[in-house]
Computed example of a mutant assay.
Amino acid sequence: MSRAAGATPRNPEPTVPRLPETEAVLEVRRAVRGWLAEYAPEARSRGVAVALSGGADSLALCAAAVVEAGSVDALVVDHRLQAGSEVVAADAAAAALKLGCRSARVLAVDVGSAGGLEAAARQARYAALDAARAGLPVLLGHTLDDQAETVLLGLARGSGGRSIQGMAAFADPWGRPLLAVRRATVRQLCADLGLKPHEDPHNSAPEFTRVRLRTEVLPLLEEVLGGGVAAALARTAEQLRDDGAVLDALAGELLRAASADSDGDGSDIDGVSLSIETLATAPSALRRRAIRAWLLAGGAKALTGKHLRAVDELITDWRGQGGVAVGGGRPGSRLVAAREHGRLTMRLR
C-alpha cells in the first residue's frame, strides 16, 4: 500500500538537456529509442513514467528517456526500510527534475512480511507504481546483468523453461529498455553526466540470494567459463521467451479443442471441464501449458511444477488417484482438479 508524500513537484517548463555523446550515453539512448519505437510509439505525445530509485540504472534510464521520449514522469518509491530513506527519495526526485522530467513524485509504501522482505518490498513497489502511473507505461532500469541473475534464480527453481525466460522487455505496463545494456555501462553514463547514484546497502547485503549471485556466483562462472556468461544467459532467456510465445499459442488451441464439447462453445475456459482424451493425445509440452492456463483461469494460485505434474498424471498416469488441490479457493474450501467421467474438472471442495 502506498501513501501520498505531499504534492507532486513539477517542472513548469522542463528543458531537455544536451547529453554528451560518450559511448555509454549513446548506447543507453539507442536502447531506449529502440524500445520506444517497438513498444510505445505514442510516447512522444503522451510521455512515459520511469521508476526511479536513485541508483545508477534508473538514473541512466531517466536521463536517456527524457531525451528520447520527451515527457517523463519520475515515480520514486520510498520503502521506508532504512533510516533516512525519505532523504534518498527526495534527492532522487530532485535529480529527476534537474534531468528534465516534467514531474517527480515520491511514493511512500508500507512493506509487509509475506514471502520474505524482498518479495514483500517488490509487491508494495509494483502496486504503488501501478496506482500512480496515470495510464502511462512504466520504464524499469533492469539491465543485462539483472536478467542474467533472474535466469539463474529461475534455473534453481527447476520448474521448466518458463522459469528461465527471464524478464520481458514489455509486459504491460512494465517496460525494460535496458535488458541488453550492461550494468557497467549505466554506471559509466552516470559518471559521464556527473550524477552521483545512491548505493543501496541492500544491494551488497550477503543475506539476499540475488546479491550472492551478483557478487560470488556470476564472477566465478565468468572466471571458470572464460567470460560472456551474463550475455549468454540473457540470450538464452530471450530465445526461450520467443519459443514460449509460440508454444503458448499452440497450447491455447489445444485448450479450446479440449473444452469445445463442454458447457458453452468452449470460448471461455474459466470453469469449463476438459476432455481427457484430447489432452492425452497431445504432446506433453503443449498439454502442460494448456493445463497451467486452465488452472490459472479457474482461480488456482501459486502454481508449482509439483502441482502441474500431479494434474498431468490425472491424464497420463491414471491409477484411480484422488483430486489435486491447486491453491486458491475460499475460506473453508479448496480448489481441486480431478478426473471425472473422462473429463478434467475443477471444483471447490
Score class of each variant (00 low, 15 high):
237 A>R: 03
173 P>G: 01
191 A>Y: 02
195 L>Y: 02
84 G>N: 08
160 G>L: 11
51 A>E: 11
238 E>H: 12
209 T>V: 15
105 R>G: 00
24 A>N: 00
23 E>R: 06
127 A>L: 05
272 V>A: 15
204 S>C: 06
205 A>T: 14
94 A>N: 07
337 A>I: 11
22 T>W: 02
111 V>R: 04
60 A>H: 07
27 E>W: 00
227 G>T: 09
127 A>H: 09
302 A>V: 11
26 L>C: 10
100 G>A: 09
132 A>L: 03
303 L>E: 07
34 G>Q: 03
75 L>A: 07
32 V>L: 04
21 E>C: 12
340 E>K: 09
293 A>H: 13
296 L>Q: 11
49 A>C: 15
131 A>G: 07
92 A>R: 04
240 L>E: 00
176 R>N: 12
230 A>R: 08
64 A>E: 05
230 A>V: 03
314 L>G: 06
256 R>C: 09
250 L>P: 08
196 K>C: 14
228 G>D: 06
165 Q>L: 10
135 G>P: 01
228 G>I: 05
102 R>T: 04
177 P>I: 00
18 R>I: 12
180 A>N: 13
51 A>Y: 01
131 A>M: 06
316 T>G: 08
151 V>T: 01
109 V>W: 01
8 T>H: 03
339 R>I: 12
349 R>M: 11
105 R>Y: 01
143 T>D: 03
290 A>P: 05
90 A>Y: 10
284 S>F: 10
323 G>C: 10
247 L>S: 12
168 A>T: 06
80 R>L: 15
238 E>K: 13
98 K>C: 09
2 S>G: 09
34 G>F: 04
273 S>K: 04
125 R>T: 14
44 R>T: 11
183 R>H: 09
39 Y>F: 10
223 E>N: 13
89 A>P: 05
294 W>P: 03
348 L>M: 08
13 E>N: 15
